[in-house]
């Protein structure tokens, strides 16, 4: 399996505080990975670096077969290259309908002039309806996203990720605020997505991580503490000490 994303030796400081410390990480083309770690371990900052929101002080972030550096690219270029992201706090465009949100995310030419000329075809509408069905929002297509419940917004954001059709999905705490049934559905969506692309899931909930049934990376104080199957990392002395044993 070839490497899709390679992060090596990355460090970031905020006002002297090292949020990420010499972090290295790799993920393959069609792989699911769970990232766990205590609050403030740097999980969100790690995603910020990959998506171009935060520029690291040191290190490399290489992408794809051609080992392109993501550090020189803007957020929108990185997204166009195939990195999709779901935020910790659901961020959807509340003033617009569910259909509009999905249509915005749908994989199309993003340049202003082609968007100006864009008219959604029946196929595009079909695709939007299809995704809406996957995320259980087919009846809410024409409701404003702001009217949705917290869990539904989480799903809408996952739906937007699917519409974007990225090669790498970065999903920050997708199950927060969801009922057990909703969590199960979310797991199924992510597992399905990981069949054809790389998925990185940050999650606190161990049960959720167990159901993802994938390799786990434990972050602590901005670097990788342990990596392996869930059973292996949860029996790791250091992990128990900093994370589980609390």
């Amino acid at each position: 399996m070839s490497t899709l994303l390679e992060v090596s030796g990355v460090s970031v400081s905020f006002d002297g505080f090292r949020a990420i410390n010499n972090l290295s990480f790799q993920i393959g083309q069609a792989e699911m990975r769970a990232v766990i770690g205590p609050n403030g371990a740097g999980k969100t900052t790690f995603m910020d670096i990959i998506t171009g929101k935060t520029k690291p002080d040191a290190g490399r972030v290489l992408w794809g077969d051609k080992s392109q550096s993501l550090l020189a690219m803007s957020e929108s270029q990185i997204a166009q290259a195939g990195v999709g992201r779901k935020f910790q706090r659901p961020t959807v465009f509340e003033d617009q309908s569910v259909a509009d949100n999905l249509m915005l995310a749908l994989r199309k030419n993003r340049s202003p002039l082609s968007v100006l000329r864009f008219r959604a075809s029946a196929q595009d509408h079909g695709k939007v309806a299809e995704i809406a069905q996957e995320i259980g929002l087919e009846a809410a297509l024409h409701r404003k996203a702001g009217e949705l419940s917290h869990g539904q917004k989480q799903w809408l954001e996952i739906g937007m990720l699917l519409a974007q059709d990225p090669q790498l999905l970065l999903v920050d705490e997708p199950a927060a605020g969801m009922t057990p049934a909703e969590r199960e559905h979310t797991t199924a969506l992510l597992v399905e997505a990981a069949k054809t692309r790389a998925v990185v899931v940050v999650e606190h909930d161990m049960e959720f991580v167990r159901r993802l049934d994938c390799k786990v990376t434990v972050l602590h104080e901005g670097s990788v503490l342990a990596e392996g199957t869930l059973d292996r990392v949860t029996s790791d002395e250091k992990v128990i000490e900093v994370y589980l044993g609390r």
Binding site: S76, A79, V115, M160
Partner: peptide, 27 residues
Amino acid sequence: GKFGSVLRAIRDDEARVRFLGYSVEAY
């Protein structure tokens, strides 16, 4: 059209629009 949708999205959360792959500055 969709252009208006992008504009309103920029107004409401321009960072999010960037992560969708739109060059906010160009718009």
